[in-house]
Design a protein around this nucleic acid. Sequence first.
DNA 1: TTGTAAGCGTTATCAA
DNA 2: TTGATAACGCTTACAA
Lengths: 347, 347
Amino acid sequence: MYSKEIAKLAGVSRSTVSRVINNYSNVAPETKEKVERVIKEYGYVPHASAQALAGKVSKIIGIFIANIRSGDEEYRVFRNVYISPFEAAIIDQADKLGYNTLVLIINDNEDFKKIRKLFNSKILSGGIFLGANNNSKEIFGLIESGYKLAVIDQEEIKKKNVKNHIIVNSDNYTGAYKATKHLIDYGHKAIAHICGDMNKYSGIKRLEGYRKAMKEARLKIKREYIAYGDFTEDSGFKCANQILKDKNKNKITAIFSSNDTMALGAMKAIKRMDLRIPEDISIVGYDDIRIASYVSPALTTVRSPILEMASVVTDNLINFIEKGTSSSRYYIIPVELIIRESTMKLT
Amino acid sequence: MYSKEIAKLAGVSRSTVSRVINNYSNVAPETKEKVERVIKEYGYVPHASAQALAGKVSKIIGIFIANIRSGDEEYRVFRNVYISPFEAAIIDQADKLGYNTLVLIINDNEDFKKIRKLFNSKILSGGIFLGANNNSKEIFGLIESGYKLAVIDQEEIKKKNVKNHIIVNSDNYTGAYKATKHLIDYGHKAIAHICGDMNKYSGIKRLEGYRKAMKEARLKIKREYIAYGDFTEDSGFKCANQILKDKNKNKITAIFSSNDTMALGAMKAIKRMDLRIPEDISIVGYDDIRIASYVSPALTTVRSPILEMASVVTDNLINFIEKGTSSSRYYIIPVELIIRESTMKLT
DNA sequence: TTGTAAGCGTTATCAA
DNA sequence: TTGATAACGCTTACAA
């Protein structure tokens, strides 16, 4: 059922049908009603590709999820406790604003061509990059082409001073600072840090926040305090073992882990060493993933405001699409320390 | 940059460019190479909407997520521990097969029009329904229209004997049976059941499985054994309170909860009554959500094979799209009991 | 207020 | 093996 047939049935031209579909004002009330009746009766829906080809913009935004190259792990979105809720939150928020979402996982450079194609074809009217730290060059190119784009937890783009895009970051630096400060306030001095993936903006910033707090308190960061993980539970387990293997010597009493998942691994390792949490070792995580409050002892952590970030980025992108903007926007969403049972005052 | 310009630059016609793009055999090697060089040089990508309009099929499938009308809860995908991983797993699997995914949340009947539009416009070449029990009529209509569709955890469609679609269900009935049987094997006799949403296929089937196991063991199901929740943690909390309020009288020693989320709520309620798990009350959940193994005591549960279901449904759908099929397919994915610490033998 | 006709960028048919 | 040309279904000047 096409507009041509609707036109014939309603006794008007295709242009008039088009006008009705697009809610143009210059169509007589009776005509409009008549056409609408026929449309309804025959369940006519316009052909989106034809509309796109004729110049109409779509109500679809893209979510571009960067390839998380973690060994042979094939389930990139499914397994990722950080990306997955983000993606879900964006879908929800976009839905509220009447937009649908097309998810694309970026495995290689071919996929950037795909993105370009989707934009050129007007299937997408905007897009959001997730976990995209390694692709700043390509993203830069896309932005330069004039596509409406937003990026979450990215710093590179900003440095390049590219125009016309949106960056939403959570305040990793302050979050890590708060986490470490909390341990310092509780009287800890030998505080270790399990780093995340240092190729990621969040990994770097959280280490910096830790350093800042330590420095401010005039606490020396010994070499043994730092272990390098990669945000996986496994790496958290290993790092905790490494950090605590000379516990008698280095007297470490607290650990700040760069994310909750690694903290979970670390907790396992600590328990396996027959050390108690928090009596022997206090531990702070980061992200406040759902499990954090259910694990025993409940994990003290920094809440990543996923929902808020998703809302901010989606609202801004859609506003950018519909109203247009001439400048770039940069948001840092504040972050909250959630004190639970995994940390205690050193007496 | 359009095919017309590429054609001019390569000194050929648009048809030839099209042939190269689509890898047709009837084009001379030198011509092909020449055209490819120009395409690469200018970074030309074809206009997807134009291709769709001209009849080419897309490599995009839809994920249609049914409105979960849970009060004022606005974040439907984000908050849903069951839907969200499913959606993520499908995205991953589709990506592996070279397909992208368009997510659409079904809020009202207007959204079915949207789906129809997406299909008519050849933007979508197939789709998967998630949590769609209340929409079987509309889905039925869509299938009848010839769209390639798959449905997860749906029974209604099958009853209607519609042709040409795919249904993938997990074996809720056997899973619930196994869970209850496990408690019976552990010597429990007064076993309560917290039901899920009885408008959902899974809610109904799990109750049936519970009944079956009880009946088989000649255990009477007293009225007080059954409480009606709605799959939320809150409802689990309330149901546990209701079930256990006359514990001295009805001697309930075990609970089978229709999902893990409610089991978590029930555990909170049980602890708040100063009852111990599993010494006083054994509890079994369902789904094996990630938290289940981290909570204390770790929850005995039935593992819903989300990843496997997602793979089966996605593989089948894409095979259906690419090869076509004439008949319907119906899969029941087997389910596994995971025994952890929340259940113990009654002595 | 309405209709005519051109154009959007491809692919497919047919002839050469 | 190639090129011209007609779809594909819609929107949008422009004219009436």
